[in-house]
Design a protein around this nucleic acid. Structure first.
Lengths: 119, 119, 119, 119
DNA sequence: GTGGTCTAGACCACA
DNA sequence: GTGGTCTAGACCACG
């Protein structure tokens, strides 16, 4: 699995988000075993502790579960991942609108600004 | 002056941004004296050190200047503030697109998502 | 504050439990500032990271909140702490009954066993 | 034989405990041959290594003995199993009282709490 | 090999 | 000084 990490921002939530994405989009199937904490850490170039914390956060949300001595697995119910992913998109968008409004742009103005944004 | 501050995020840049906005939009005129660091700190409910650093940051950018024993003033040339403000909008928008793309949305998809966003 | 720690069991939840107790029993008042992470770590003889994780867990439950650069505070609403504490007692008791039942004792037998327990 | 296993806790001691119980309560008679490690592992849904370690632990306590090439047997002297079983009950109860006391309940209070516990 | 937990120590921004 | 986050490395029980 590829990771897109911005090391100037907290890594842990970035891992969570991208895992959510991969479960929501079907890359990871229910009850599929993920790579081990150490393997993910190696491939992502981060510390195993950071990966462990990310997995635990998703376990807390019911999106992953762990089996001692065996590994981490995708929960049967991927609805939770899908819902969490939708929530992520909404939260980020809401935060963006909010920040722009603090800078004096109305909601409509933000929409217009984005529409004219040069990709 | 009113401040819109999210205390869970670094306060210093928030102060800088909102000062830029007020200079760019003409609320503060060239060579106008700002409230003292202490007054701003009090009204915004933050530490005076934080306000001091914000003012120094804007001085560094040529947007404010200080007069020893007197206070802080808006620079003659407000173009710098305007430019900084435009840059802020662009940076935030770019960051937003970038984050959304990591979550699997193309630039076009982001535009569409924003367009349909329920304000 | 005194800590009763069994180092053969996970420390983090033990800290959480005893903080809950102290908030629920009124030792710590709403909006009271706790000792800093480092001070608690020192007094409890554990690593600051472990204390930090405990505080974050209670923040997640709405029992504490943190102010950047200032410290950790007891939430206004101590009902959450009280409820969490009651839940702890119930969970531990339930777990005890459950373990004893696996060992062949009926619920009534467990009650009798406890009643005759020599303190 | 049925096994009641909590997979979130160490499995090996759970197997030991339940074997002790079955010997103490007479389900398994002295010199009776147990199911093979592999069979037990299969029926309990655990790793054969874990079963093996459990049997070895009980052999160490003199509760089981092994015959090379044949299998595992219940010791002639089941007193050891009975004693170990009684010790288990006492240890668990003691641990329970201890945990509750850390949470501020006196021994008497614990007894009262258990007495009023809604089964 | 795996996850689970802890220690030790570092760096950052903020007050 | 404070919290927030990360790295590095250790030890344990389990498979």
């Amino acid at each position: 699995m590829e990771w897109v990490l911005n090391k100037n921002k907290p890594i842990c939530p970035q891992l969570c988000e991208q895992l959510c994405l991969r479960i929501a989009d079907g890359t990871f199937k229910p009850n599929e075993r993920l790579l081990s904490v150490r393997e993910v850490a190696l491939s992502a170039g981060v510390n195993p502790n950071t990966v462990q914390r990310s997995f635990e956060e998703l376990e807390h949300q019911g999106i992953l579960y762990s089996v001692r001595g065996s590994g981490w697995y995708v929960s049967e119910n991927t609805h939770l991942a899908t819902a969490a992913f939708e929530r992520l998109l909404a939260e980020k968008t809401e935060a963006f609108f909010s920040e722009m409004q603090v800078l004096g742009l109305s909601g409509e103005a933000v929409k217009k600004y984005v529409e004219e944004w040069n990709l």
